[in-house]
Design a protein around this nucleic acid. Structure first.
Lengths: 245, 245
DNA sequence: GCAACCCGTTGCGCTCAGCGCAACGGGTGT
DNA sequence: ACACCCGTTGCGCTGAGCGCAACGGGTTGC
């Protein structure tokens, strides 16, 4: 474990939240100002941090590298045009989430018209038991389902499914119908429908969702979009080499 | 200068390009495998690197932090809905580039329908003398123009303006007409029109462009979109607090 | 089935990279 | 003019981090 590198990551976590002055960085790390300064100077030399009027902020090289890493994800590259088309057709926010180890991470997002604020952001994880994309993936991964059921099922809203038996029943329904819904289970007043994306070998490691605030579209409204959603995820799956049902 | 942190940044540069095995990382850094392994383990503990079947790759925490840093850019948040609307209206790729110190960096991009490959990517810098957004910013920043003219003006294509006097004349035209064009000056067969974005104090530190391959739209075609582009950049400027001409 | 090879990994002794301290220059506020 | 705070640098000291040697495991070739 490298102490300097650990500190550097903590600095970047801090600066991503908001710019900070040297004294604030030193205090946050619990080191002398000269130590913090040298660390920031090193990060600056690599483009990972930069100076602003107010102090220090995240450097653009970090942003460039992150974008490069995102662009190299196969699923995202293949899915992008399909997601864009679906977004144009239905006018709602579209998400693509991919399983990474045991976490489901948003890797693409087509935002709807108008300023709709929601939790999801590229790079953030989706709760497996309390999101449409999460349930759309869990329904086809029994081993991961057991892992999730064996852990805590936090109740984010009154609608969250926190009972393992209820979750199992819900996932059986999802598997049967081929899609999942989220009716305010993670964020109140945000609903979505989601469907799984299959890899060439048929395994499910990603999912797509159509999401909207309930003032814009109710779950019933979104269900009308299931044909387009399913067509989209099947097309993405075929483009990934899946030979179909 | 922290050697460990410097190495960590170099590892991330490597992994963003493509996943690598431990031996490859050690060789690239010029250190022992045990040293490289400990460094990777540290990065993994912070979520900046993760293991894959093939070795090591960039971790999703890095992507999340980068997205968070992007989301905190005022210009981007304000501009986003306007760029989306412009993209819908004209059907071409829209860029937002912001000046950071003396570099102009793409901070947002609305991609057109269809798979159009071009150099620009969020996080990458645009060449100031050889791009529409670059010239749209330079035209209003005499000091930066002097800096650019005093340096090299690389010729990326036969159309690149490499002569300082010719660039000065071009920038005078841009200032007069209020917009810039790029007719294959950076990438052959890629054209755009661009206009500056003003901050509350009237200064120019960002620009928006409408870009297309010439097989899709010629420069003459894009010029027809100038009214919408100018309306968009003026609206963004007003939303940033600019009181107008 | 066995040997050779390569991978990732860990414990440990040694040393120099990185630490905090003290001092500095500069800007701001009273 | 003085006090305060900021960012910054040189330097002596020490423990964090280095490479080495050895390990376990998987794969390949014979």
């Amino acid at each position: 474990m490298s102490e300097g590198v650990d500190r550097a990551m903590r600095v970047l976590e801090l600066l991503a939240r908001e710019p900070a002055q040297l004294g604030g960085v030193a205090a946050d790390l619990g080191v002398h100002k000269s130590t913090a300064l040298r660390l920031l100077q090193t990060l600056e030399s690599g483009g990972f941090a930069r100076r602003t009027d107010g102090g220090w902020t995240v450097g653009l090289r970090l942003i460039d590298l992150a974008q490069q890493a995102l662009d190299s994800l196969d699923v995202r590259a293949v899915a992008r045009p399909h997601l864009a088309a679906l977004g144009r057709d239905c006018g709602h926010t579209i998400h693509l989430a991919q399983l990474v180890d045991d976490d489901l991470v948003y890797v693409d997002k087509i935002e709807a018209r108008g300023q709709v604020r929601m939790y999801s952001r590229i790079g953030r994880t989706a709760p497996l038991h309390a999101s449409g994309v999460g349930k759309a993936v869990l329904a086809y991964r029994p081993q991961l389902t057991r892992l999730v059921e064996g852990g805590a099922l936090p109740a984010y809203t009154p609608a969250t499914i926190s009972d393992p038996a209820a979750l199992r029943a819900e996932l059986a329904t999802v598997a049967e119908q081929g899609w999942a819904a989220d009716d305010g289970e993670f964020e109140p007043l945000i609903t979505c429908v989601a469907a799984p994306v299959r890899h060439a070998d048929g395994s499910v490691t990603a999912a797509v969702s159509v999401t909207a605030p309930t003032v814009v579209a109710t779950l019933a409204d979104l269900r009308h979009l299931l044909p387009q959603l399913l067509a989209t995820t099947q097309q993405i799956s075929r483009d990934l080499g899946w030979s179909g049902p």
